[in-house]
């Protein structure tokens, strides 16, 4: 009898987990659609243009039109390309990006049908480590994609991307150490819970500064978008990609932006903890993440691109010492 009950509980939790997985995957696949629209609108209005206006109300259906266009384009693989790796690279990017969202919690647990449902797929105790490690997989996809394309622009772009990602992942990793010291945990859920009273941005302004800049570089957004510098590299590692494969790269790029915005919110802006106005925790989280996504876009259409050596010296000579000093000072104060 008891064993039967246990099996039922196991089954229910399995079903819940599967349902959550399906929902997360669907939402993630859908998210780039409004984001491309938003990005083009913001770009337009910053430059006093209207942005897309023709398809649907204020161009709302434009991403669908773009999607249809990309899907119906010829699936082109260059003659000299390594076919296996060329087809593999976009899939690796997408898988790596989806894997990142496994540990992202988006709100307090909710009650549904008498079940307590947690709003994350997994609460690892080393979630932060997992996040930093898995975001490194993206580099492989970039190397493979650039190399398999067999084109000088793609190779140059992928080399730049790798150098950039590696040199910014280090200050990024150091910047979160302060947060871990404050929360005594690497689990993202307990990091958020530890900020119930005061957000980490108050204690860790320097850490946030370093982390934010490093995440701009990780997302390869302007002013750190050297990997795709249209002006000198065509489009970087995905120069040779077109149609569906190209759109896979685009989807993962947008997802990484969302992911980094979410990470900024979770680590430094109190996650779903409310501020002044009590709203449902998910709503707070979405609002904050939306703000960061908007911030990324605003930056993109304001700043010019850094030169490559400037990019490297910012990473190694400014952000790295700053993040180390941050650890030192936090450690001194905490002890």
């Amino acid at each position: 009898m008891i064993r039967g009950g246990l099996i039922v509980i196991e089954l229910v939790s399995l079903v819940v987990l599967l349902a959550k997985m399906v929902i997360v995957i669907l939402v993630l696949l859908m998210l780039p659609i409004p984001l491309t629209w938003l990005e083009r609108k913001i770009a337009g209005h910053i430059q006093q243009r209207l942005g897309p206006m023709r398809v649907g109300w204020h161009g709302l259906l434009q991403p669908l039109a773009d999607g249809i266009k990309l899907l119906t384009k010829e699936d082109h693989i260059p003659d000299e390309a390594d076919r296996l790796l060329f087809t593999l690279a976009p899939i690796i990017t997408l898988v790596a990006t989806f894997a990142l969202f496994v540990v992202i919690p988006i709100g307090d647990p909710i009650q549904l049908f008498g079940q307590e449902i947690t709003l994350y797929l997994a609460d690892m105790n080393v979630a932060l480590l997992y996040v930093l490690a898995v975001s490194g997989i993206h580099v492989f996809a970039v190397i493979i994609g650039g190399w398999a394309s067999n084109s000088k622009y793609a190779v140059l772009g992928s080399l730049r991307t790798c150098a950039q990602m590696i040199s910014y992942e280090i200050p990024m990793g150091f910047a979160v150490v302060g947060v871990v010291m404050l929360a005594h945990s690497m689990s993202l859920v307990s990091i958020v819970n530890s900020q119930a009273d005061v957000w980490n941005i108050v204690y860790q302004p320097l850490g946030f500064f370093v982390f934010f800049i490093a995440s701009l570089a990780e997302a390869q957004r302007i002013p750190f978008d050297l990997a795709e510098a249209e002006g000198d590299l065509g489009a970087g590692y995905h120069t040779e990609y077109s149609g569906m494969r190209f759109s896979l790269f685009m989807i993962s790029e947008y997802l990484i932006v969302i992911f980094l915005a979410a990470l900024n919110v979770i680590l430094f802006f109190g996650g779903w903890n409310d501020f002044l106005v009590p709203l449902p925790s998910i709503l707070w989280f979405v609002l904050k993440v939306g703000f960061f996504v908007w911030l990324f876009m605003w930056f993109r259409f304001t700043f010019p691109r850094y030169r490559y050596d400037q990019l490297m010296s910012i990473g190694w000579k400014v952000l790295l010492p700053l993040s180390l000093a941050n650890i030192l000072v936090s450690g001194l104060i905490l002890s």
Partner: peptide, 20 residues
């Protein structure tokens, strides 16, 4: 940088010049 950001912000909420 802040000057640049505030400039683009004010442009974001100004009238567009696009002729449709």
């Amino acid at each position: 940088l802040v000057g640049g950001l505030s400039l683009t912000l004010s442009y974001m909420f100004s009238k567009t010049v696009t002729e449709q």
